[in-house]
Amino acid sequence: MASPVVAQRPAETPARPGRRRRPGIGRRDHLIGWLLIAPALVYFIIFLLYPALAALYYSFTEWDLHSAPIWVGLQNYTDLFFDDVKYPHFWKSIQVTLQYTLVAVPLTLVAALGQALLINAIRRGSNLFRLLLFLPVVTAEAAVGAIWRWLYDPQYGLVNAVLGLVGIPRQNWLNTPELVIPALAFIAAWQCGISMIIYLAGLKSIPESIREAAVIDGAGPVQRFFKVTVPMLRPTTFYLVVTGIIAALQVFGLVYVIFSGGGNRSVTGGPEQSGLAYVLHIYLYAFRYNAMGAACAMSFILLVFIMIITFVQFKFMKQEAS
């Protein structure tokens, strides 16, 4: 439902090929071309395009999955925005998701860049560390949730034990509304392995000559970092910010597991709805309250919002290395 999609790097777009047909490409080649992409195309149409269009249709209906959908026009949309009796936590879920995004994305990028710099700096054993730092990404979400529930445990948790060493009093991380978002964002930062690998690739692609030139000009390590490394990594950072925000706005698995894992904890989004992520809210309406029409409308609101955010980023953020 909310798996972050790692898209292709948009950095270098190849020049458009000429309109004129190249010689030697006949109809048969077209056919083979189509055949070759057919599996991907079929997948795209059946599993992405059709469901998306169906969801758009259902977003204009009242549908409980059991009986025939009833056309209600824009009512789902207006109710979501203005009827806080029907959807009491809609705006809360938006607030939670935005807060999470604002905390989690920068934290993830800083952690990823820090790890990449460290791995880039060591000569031996970098493969091992890369593997270890990447492990959280390939760990099953359910296991991650269970582990962090333990780490955040108010009585026995390791997090409190470590903080206790520097004199910070014990916190009840996952049960204090104000601490839920930072706690979740910290887990996201711990899972920054993919960003770390991409940063690492970015670091490797900075020409050694630029660094040497900076050294000759008398730049210290700090200056080199801010004047050379950071600007040279700008395309990478841009890509990671864009995809990071898209993924953070769709956070689901982690929240679902943390606040529902085990026992009879119910999935209403943590203490005082402080962890009620937008997609969790969609899930609850779709599958718990049988309001699929409203859930589809929420999905489309999210889609439009993500498109706007991404457009704004492409328009106003510096993308080129300098």
Binding site: P88, S266, T268, P271, E272, Q273, L284, R288, Y289
Partner: peptide
Amino acid sequence: PQWIQINDEIIAPALESALS
């Protein structure tokens, strides 16, 4: 029919605001 929703979305938060 709406009881799950009332239970989760209305009563649960009310209990929480009194308990907190």
